[in-house]
Design a protein around this nucleic acid. Structure first.
Lengths: 339, 339
DNA sequence: AGCACAGCCTAAAGCGCTTTAGCGTTCTCT
DNA sequence: AGAGAACGCTAAAGCGCTTTAGGCTGTGCT
């Protein structure tokens, strides 16, 4: 900037004003400065900007998943794609970190904020008894929790937005679909027990089952891995009065489940129907094609990022709901066989 | 730091020395300062550090993949896991960006470097006629190219390391395996044409085929998607004298290919053998289980990150090779049927 | 003519840290 | 005993930017 100032024959302050579209310089000077800057290939130093109070021009994303569990499903990369799209508009960076558990995640938030590394964060995988909203509020770190059930009990915290999908409604549509097909014995192979959406899906399943008078409907939690998905499948299908329908909390387990079922002699959908939560290429790569709940993860990411940008502009914290996932009926669900 | 200095009764400089393990303060003072800092919960401001010449404590990773192509395979998340593990040791951040193409990728490097946002970058998906090494050398941005074929022609650039897997050796092992099983007609469903490892695999395939006197062996490039994998599979199997073995450049296409083959009445491995490049949960989720080339992607990431750290410490640029991928023989390959 | 005010610009301080030069004290060696 | 080195520390400058206070000029008003 000193160079620019010299070459343009003005002071550094004038350069700063000119380059940041702030009043205080004439249009003619502004243009001159801009041209010189352009010519010199000047780019603002984020460090210096950050130091003089402008913020770090970066948002953070940390995902806490045990070592192996990551990378099986495509959820995160898609979410990130969406986030990036929005961040790119303002040339904001995305600081990304993978950690083992929520405790480590909290430590990262503390560190990032103390080090002025980020202006805000995106929080994924909300949990029951989640320590993170508390912490973020305490720190005053702007954040948007994505995937969370809106917290109706507690007051909306300033600087903490929520973007959520209606897991309850989606689960209701799944149960409705299966019930209509005549299924009475259903097992829901759920994801990680501590996650808010897992609990919500399980609660809704129970509620819907009760409402419809279905007694043989239950959930089993897993770690989302193909291994556990297959193991649970074998276990429940091996029992007396095996279920006629299985609902998997992700695509990977669903696919693994179909294979496991086959190995036990259960054909899909003839002997057992299968629904996958989360549609992806996977669901159309196996035979039969899987009936799946489809949501637009990329746009989920976009929405979350946009919400965070709002917060960074001192906008109000809000709660926005993304569209209800649609149930795509394919080949893996069918009316229950009448013996 | 000013606060710490005051409370510890020393100057700011002394605090800086104490906290950075630099000589210039007595052990007793150092301890006192440390205690005060601890008690105040002090963390260095990365912005200030960066500004006074320490670097940004951040490395960058940009992946250029057309919108849809990302997120199908698990390669990136695993790579990132490995990278993070190493970066965490030094509390380095990972700035992550997804872009559409290499041109955009270059722009990001320019910007990051000009803005002092990163100290170095990890470059993935090396290409034939890759503009990136050139650019990085010109900028002087430390980088490690991962997955590249070592560039034997050009001199090793300072500040540019290479971590590579022996795709040629791996391809040779695949051809050997298939040849031994009696296969003579083989189609290699390759990945994106511009990528260095794609070209290398295709070249090696041809060379190996020539060496063994196999004339009906060829490669077809794709975009790595399940859709193209399936389409190409249908096309080649539908032709006269269809191949008896298919080699897919990733797991996703392999799985899609098996399904496509089945829809044409080709059973795997009875009618056609299948090999997947890149082993993953997917390969054990379908029936038959896929014979696959397995490499340790997480440790690939670790190696790359470690190499970059070396560069950041002004270590020498190097070329390191990761272990040869192993061919895991499962159910999808079998001796060719004797008519 | 005199005054107020707007417009354009500069000087200087400050953000939180590192680093160099230098100062006084104690230790070591001849 | 005196010179010199070693040690423990401080003062101050500087990294690249933003921002506040204020200076100067020219315009419009009474």
């Amino acid at each position: 900037m000193k160079d620019i100032a010299r070459r343009a024959g003005v002071s550094e302050s004038a350069v700063s004003f000119a380059l940041n579209d702030r009043p205080g310089v004439s249009d003619i000077t502004r243009d001159r400065v801009r041209r010189v800057a352009e010519q010199l290939g000047w780019r603002p130093s984020t460090a210096a900007r950050a130091l003089s109070g402008e913020g770090a021009a970066t948002v953070g994303l940390v995902v806490a998943r045990p070592a192996g569990t990551l990378g099986v499903d495509s959820f995160f990369l898609q979410l990130i794609s969406g986030i990036q799209e929005v961040l790119a508009e303002r040339q904001l960076g995305l600081l990304f970190q993978v950690v083992e558990d929520v405790t480590a995640e909290c430590a990262v938030y503390r560190r990032w904020w103390a080090e002025h590394r980020v202006d805000g964060v995106l929080v994924v995988d909300p949990r029951t008894d989640d320590p993170r909203p508390e912490l973020l509020a305490e720190l005053g770190l702007p954040a948007v929790v994505t995937g969370g059930v809106p917290d109706t009990e507690r007051p909306q915290r300033p600087g903490l937005s929520t973007v959520w999908a209606d897991d309850a409604g989606a689960m209701a549509s799944v149960v409705g679909h299966l019930h209509a097909l005549g299924h009475r014995r259903v097992v829901h192979i759920a994801g990680l027990p501590g996650l808010a959406h897992t609990e919500r899906r399980m609660r809704t399943l129970r509620a819907e089952a009760d409402r419809r008078g279905l007694t043989e409907v239950r959930s089993v939690t897993t770690d989302y891995s193909d291994a556990e998905g297959a193991a649970v499948t074998r276990r429940v299908l091996g029992a007396d009065a095996p279920p006629t329908a299985l609902v998997y909390d992700n695509d990977v387990m669903a696919v693994a489940g179909v294979a496991a079922a086959a190995s036990l002699g259960f054909a899909v959908p003839d002997d057992v129907s299968v629904v996958a939560w989360e549609d992806s290429a996977l669901c159309r790569m196996v035979h039969p094609w899987l009936t799946a709940l489809s949501r637009d993860t990329v746009s989920f990411g976009r929405t979350a990022a946009r919400e965070l940008l709002g917060l960074l502009d001192d906008g109000p914290a809000g709660t926005v709901q993304v569209p209800l996932p649609r149930l795509i009926e394919r080949e893996s669900t069918r009316a229950v066989r009448t013996t």
